[in-house]
């Protein structure tokens, strides 16, 4: 049995009459890439916000990195990394300054920051650009930098909310290589995406429809289960039944 990093039990979030996330139960194991799929409005973001300790569940339980989302959100925050769909570094700071800032927020010492930032900048091949403002970088680079900063403090889990939106296929592929590298270092990746080719790269995939998890398996398992040739077909079969998608 592999070590469990995220585990939810009947996790529910309700806004008035609207049940955004309806009793979802699943587990994510250490070192895997877990794809969290669903049409727009299916409740992915809400679920993710609860797991990040940003939003309190209406009912149900969940633990992330061994901490309870209901009672220990602050502990969770120390042990996770987060990258949102919007690019979220300070555009008017340089690359180095951004690394220093976020390193500082996560309580790294100056020495650690200096080491890591040197290492990171070299690895990304940004030595020349290290004093450039982040705002002037191409989008692909920004995303890579953003991810590297999200895992700067060696979190147990990193949450990625549609990290590759608007990025070209080549850069996307490179980005996924970075994700694999991170998992080799023992970091668990929890990622939402709309790209089905990316879903194929995940170790396991869950698909949410109308606030519920309708399917959860490895991409191959899902294809077999739904008798489909690609993840695209699997997703389409499930999403078609959705009542509240906005497409």
């Amino acid at each position: 049995m592999r070590e469990t990093v995220i585990s939810t039990n009947q996790l529910t979030k309700q806004f008035g009459d609207f049940i955004a996330t309806n009793k979802i139960t699943f587990e994510v194991y250490k070192g895997e890439i877990f794809g969290f799929l669903g049409a727009n409005g299916a409740g992915k973001t809400t679920a993710m916000r609860m797991l990040c300790g940003l939003s309190k569940p209406s009912s149900g339980h969940a633990t992330v990195a061994g901490f309870d989302v209901n009672t220990q959100p602050e502990e969770i925050k120390k042990n996770i990394g987060y990258m949102s769909q919007k690019f979220s570094l300070y555009e008017d700071l340089t690359i180095t300054e951004n690394i220093e800032f976020f390193g500082g927020i996560y309580g790294l010492t100056n020495k650690q920051i200096a080491e890591k930032s040197k290492d990171l900048i070299e690895r990304l091949g940004l030595v020349k650009a290290k004093d450039q403002l982040v705002g002037s970088l191409p989008l692909g680079w920004k995303q890579k930098l953003s991810f590297s900063i999200a895992i700067l403090h060696q979190p147990k889990v990193v949450f990625l909310d549609e990290p590759t939106g608007g990025v070209d296929p080549v850069t996307r592929r490179q980005f996924w290589d970075m994700l694999y590298q991170a998992t080799e270092n023992g970091i668990t990746v929890f990622v939402t995406t709309h790209y089905m080719d990316e879903a194929e790269y995940c170790n396991r995939v869950s698909i949410m429809v109308d606030g519920k998890i309708e399917a959860l398996d490895s991409p191959d398992g899902l294809k077999k289960q739904f008798n489909a040739n690609s993840m695209d077909e699997v997703f389409y079969q499930l999403a078609r039944s959705a009542k509240r998608s906005d497409n």
């Binding site: 120390k78 990258m83 949102s84 976020f102 927020i105």
Partner: peptide, 13 residues
């Protein structure tokens, strides 16, 4: 707007 607020809120800050 930039989304940095979200990141700050997810951080232990």
């Amino acid at each position: 707007e930039l989304g940095t607020m979200e990141v700050l809120l997810v951080s232990p800050f």
